[in-house]
Write a protein that binds this DNA or RNA. Structure first.
Ligand SMILES: NC(=O)c1ccc[n+]([C@@H]2O[C@H](COP(=O)([O-])OP(=O)(O)OC[C@H]3O[C@@H](n4cnc5c(N)ncnc54)[C@H](O)[C@@H]3O)[C@@H](O)[C@H]2O)c1
Ligand SMILES: NC(=O)c1ccc[n+]([C@@H]2O[C@H](COP(=O)([O-])OP(=O)(O)OC[C@H]3O[C@@H](n4cnc5c(N)ncnc54)[C@H](O)[C@@H]3O)[C@@H](O)[C@H]2O)c1
Lengths: 207, 207
DNA sequence: CGCCCACTGTTAAACATTTCACAAATAGCA
DNA sequence: TGCTATTTGTGAAATGTTTAACAGTGGGCG
């Protein structure tokens, strides 16, 4: 087993898991079959899986149920994760009402905003709290994952409070790149930049 | 100028542009200063920019206004792009009401849903149309970019219709990987997978 | 029990991207 | 004009990732 895991291998693991979910009724699946289901090469499937351990049986393939258990254990999706949401605007509200996350073990347990018109409202069973209560609430609940869906202006300050409260992983939707220490994992979802990537592709293709 | 541009250089270009916007009041900026503003190395800034041309002046740096113009021209954000939105649910509604895209030259010009309760409603000045009208409307307006925010089940069919209608670039939020021909650029925003990446990080860090 | 087959795990090669280090270029100034 | 300070642009090296090829392993079967 190599000891350096490419960052891109982790989301592929999630996709292999989804493919396994579609493979009901069989006991074993080969890297070739997983390749067809995911559009990654069979070599990459095997390589990716060996980054994390040895799960296959030569001559048979991978035991589907065993591999599923292994992947959820590696990703940590066998546990339940409590999530704090900061910024209950258009996007935050959509995220709050999305039921898909709970199926993966992610549960929004508290939500915060700085706008008095939003504080106190109850959405999807969650009462929106004032951002001044963020630190205390996150510490009390020992929340480790936060979603930031505030305006760009508020985002860095919110991220600082989250880190000070012990949050170790942040999904940020605001169009800035917040500064975080190396011990905190930050993922930025920057939709304007994604659209610009598409515009670049179109511009390049058509002259 | 090398002829192979790393895919990752394109979103970095967007980030350099943002940094330039923050650099008002100066005429020139060095790769070192851009490095500080973006947290990429100065060497990477210079290398990235030379992928697309020669914009700097040795001894002085990059002319800020000129570089801004160059970047928007490369990305295509100097033009206006009409966007079609398919799936006006929680997420689609949030995207529709987001004003930030228009500032970058992206304008949602039509929206579609298959749910009778949504068809005919007007949101943000856009009347939600039946998906059966998708092909005709997209062809008539010559839309090149589409956002897919339907349920997972509907997404592949919607993508097929979009491609048949001439759409060349798609931003997909449904948790599947639609099949598209190589001539179409597809970007997937898969929030469950992003959360799983965070869970992996937390699991790995804490044992 | 031993052979064959199918498929994994892995070594090595190919490919891609980033970093390093410096020659070449320009501005500014005496 | 010639010299110096500065900063670009870019070969070359280092690093990282993917693909290819196959040796080795285990299971099934005669
Ligand atoms: N809505 C979209 O489709 C979309 C698309 C791309 C990017 N974004 C980004 O996502 C973020 C949220 O977008 P939105 O459309 O929901 O915006 P929004 O204005 O509807 O909501 C932002 C919310 O954050 C709250 N907020 C601001 N500062 C805060 C703070 N310090 N603490 C707590 N709450 C605070 C505001 O009160 C508001 O309720 C923005 O940064 C936006 O740029 C959104
Ligand atoms: N809301 C979120 O925060 C969130 C988070 C992660 C992923 N997603 C994904 O984004 C997508 C949209 O999420 P949502 O919360 O808005 O869901 P939603 O159920 O609120 O909205 C989906 C909309 O798509 C429409 N639709 C379904 N099939 C269609 C078709 N064939 N043509 C046109 N419209 C069709 C539905 O009528 C509905 O209005 C889903 O695939 C979801 O898995 C959403």
């Amino acid at each position: 087993m190599l000891n350096k895991i490419p960052q891109a291998a982790v989301p592929r693991l999630s996709l292999y898991y989804r493919a396994l979910l579609e493979s009901r009724g069989k006991d074993y699946i080969s890297s070739e079959e997983l390749s067809k289901l995911t559009n990654f090469t069979a070599a990459q499937v095997r390589r990716d899986l060996t980054y994390f351990g040895q799960f296959g049986t030569p001559g048979k393939g991978y035991a589907i149920e065993g591999l599923k258990k292994a992947i959820v254990s590696i990703l940590g999706t066998d546990k339940n994760w409590d999530v704090a949401l900061v910024g209950v605007g258009n996007l935050g509200t959509a995220l709050l009402s999305y039921r898909g996350f709970e199926q993966q073990g992610f549960r929004v347990v508290c939500a915060f905003d700085s706008d008095l018109r939003k504080i106190g409202k109850t959405l999807e069973g969650i009462k929106v709290q004032d951002t001044t209560e963020l630190e205390a609430a996150v510490k009390a609940k020992n929340v480790q994952i936060a979603i930031v869906a505030t305006s760009a202006e508020g985002a860095q300050k919110v991220v600082d409070i989250l880190i000070g409260s012990g949050v170790k992983a942040i999904l940020n939707f605001a169009p800035i790149r917040p500064h975080v220490p190396p011990s905190v994992n930050l993922l930025n979802i920057d939709l304007s930049i994604e659209l610009e990537r598409l515009a670049y592709f179109l511009t390049k293709s058509s002259g």
